[in-house]
Write a protein that binds this DNA or RNA. Structure first.
Lengths: 128, 128
DNA sequence: TTGCAATCTCTACAATTGTAAAGTAGTCTT
DNA sequence: AAGACTACTTTACAATTGTAGAGATTGCAA
């Protein structure tokens, strides 16, 4: 799987989220979809999308006079590298300490803890 | 606790790590300590540290002709906001899905899963 | 066929980040 | 007191990120 190393900026995340949901789609579509969250003009969105295409985050295909975009990375990949980035920076690359931190500091509810518990059990089961 | 909103850059992390370990310390100390990891000149380090002080990430105190730095945020705070940043961007702000992602996708070893299990249990115990 | 609407392209600009050279100043040694 | 060290200050510069105006193109509608 290519594109492991994608550190997305805030803006890139916003755009990609929209593209994932509407793909393939044109720039004006994305701009409209983001209208309420971000207040970006068409120019802004289009500029970012083209930069993202140049970086290899989006793929483009011209259909007559319309440029259609689709994402070149999956959401999973993006989520993964976002997490890895945090782990690398803040926990020296070690996952377990990060999980520990989450459990200890983010005061999860009892319900959430139980959910986690269940996830772990099911994962363990699936592994053996 | 102030300074909740600290999004650190790569460089800032490196510097802060060093400051946490040596605080209070002078810029040359930090530069030396980072010598092997990063290959930064004194100028580079000093510039960044001053910018960080301007941002409120470091505190300074002048002792005669030497400027001593200490961090203005704790490691916990920094770790926390690094995580929150990832959660916000990649998981829509929801912790549990992120944990799920970790458990499902980061192929943790059986041992790690058991550790997690233990953490959860102990946390649950401490809560009641 | 003329003009409007939609879309695209080009250009710009400020702030932030990463990086550092060069020059200044205070201090210690001889 | 002169030279050498050490640490500090000032200035700079390229790349990236966030933001967008203005003008060019094209296709449809009247």
């Amino acid at each position: 799987m290519a594109r492991e190393k994608c550190e997305l900026t805030e803006c890139e995340w916003a755009i990609l989220q929209t593209v994932w949901d509407n793909q393939p789609c044109a720039a004006p579509t994305v701009q409209e979809a983001l209208q309420n969250q971000k207040n970006w003009t068409y120019s802004t969105v289009k500029t970012m999308m083209d930069r993202m295409a140049a970086k290899g985050l989006l793929k483009t295909k011209k259909i007559r006079n319309l440029i259609m975009y689709r994402s070149a990375i999956t959401k999973q990949q993006a989520q993964n590298s976002e997490i890895m980035r945090a782990v690398k920076r803040a926990f020296n690359g070690a996952l377990t300490p990060m999980m520990q931190f989450l459990i200890d500091n983010k005061n999860l509810s009892k319900k959430q803890l139980s959910e986690l518990d269940a996830m772990i059990k099911s994962k363990k089961g699936a592994m053996s």
